[in-house]
């Protein structure tokens, strides 16, 4: 089955909303407890002091996912660099996506962004497996600019699997258009994008979407080139 990585700032009171736990019940889940340390502090020093407390919290979280039906396990990492740890563990666990936890109730409708240079087939495959045979509707979103008719093709293939599908387009700035489209949806699915000048200046798009929308965001990872 497909695995989703759920990073949680475990010692900073990070938690996972019940809505997200239920949403991911069709997937395998690895809960990644992380604790970011300033560079003054050797990670090992934090481990000695906080490891037990962190693992207790992680076990409770993992049990919630297991109760919802996921095949769940957990990892704990002490790091100076959250991004690097998430990438490394996602790679090692062969996770198809990672979650940015946010507050939500029961998820009834997903907003799936297909804007820009993303792997549409991977995202659709992921959504299909995530929804499964549940009554969760999907809105496929494209902020405009793609001329390949990807929305119609995608909508058709998702509908064939029995998922109730709508399409929506936006205009203007692609980020703002996506944020505007979020109302009426409980969670966002989007693709991972290559780092750009914008992501260096403003932070990663997925993190900004999560911050603006309050709800959870699932980021479908792009295929890594074997180098």
């Amino acid at each position: 089955m497909t695995r989703v990585l759920v990073p949680v700032a475990v010692l900073k009171g990070g938690s996972v909303s019940n809505g997200l736990v239920q949403l991911l019940s069709t997937m395998d889940v690895t809960v990644l407890g992380y604790h970011v340390l300033p560079e003054q502090t050797p990670p090992d020093q934090a481990r000695a002091q906080f490891e037990d407390r962190a693992n207790d919290a992680l076990q409770a979280l993992t049990a919630e996912f297991a109760a919802a039906g996921s095949e769940a396990d957990h990892r704990l990492v002490f790091t100076h660099d959250r991004r690097k740890s998430i990438d490394r563990v996602a790679e090692e666990t062969d996770s198809a996506a990672y979650a940015i936890t946010g507050a939500t109730g029961e998820v009834e409708r997903l907003l799936v962004s297909l804007t820009g240079d993303v792997d549409v087939d991977r995202i659709l495959g992921f959504v299909e497996e995530l929804v499964g045979d549940r009554e969760i509707g999907v809105t496929l979103f494209d902020a405009g600019g793609s001329t390949d008719g990807r929305l119609d093709v995608a909508s058709e293939s998702l509908s064939e699997t029995g998922i109730e599908t709508e399409t929506q387009t936006g205009d203007g700035d692609s980020f703002d258009a996506l944020i505007d489209a979020i109302s009426g949806h409980d969670a966002v699915v989007m693709g991972e994008k290559a780092p750009s000048l914008g992501s260096l200046l403003f932070g990663e798009e997925a993190d900004r979407v999560a911050a603006a929308s309050v709800g959870p965001v699932l980021v479908v990872r792009s295929e890594k080139d074997e180098s």
């Binding site: 090992d44 481990r47 990892r75 990492v77 490394r88």
Partner: peptide, 14 residues
């Protein structure tokens, strides 16, 4: 990329 102890991992970042 990391040091793996029994119950935790320590990220190598430098």
């Amino acid at each position: 990329e990391a040091t793996v102890t029994e119950d935790a991992e320590l990220e190598r970042t430098i």
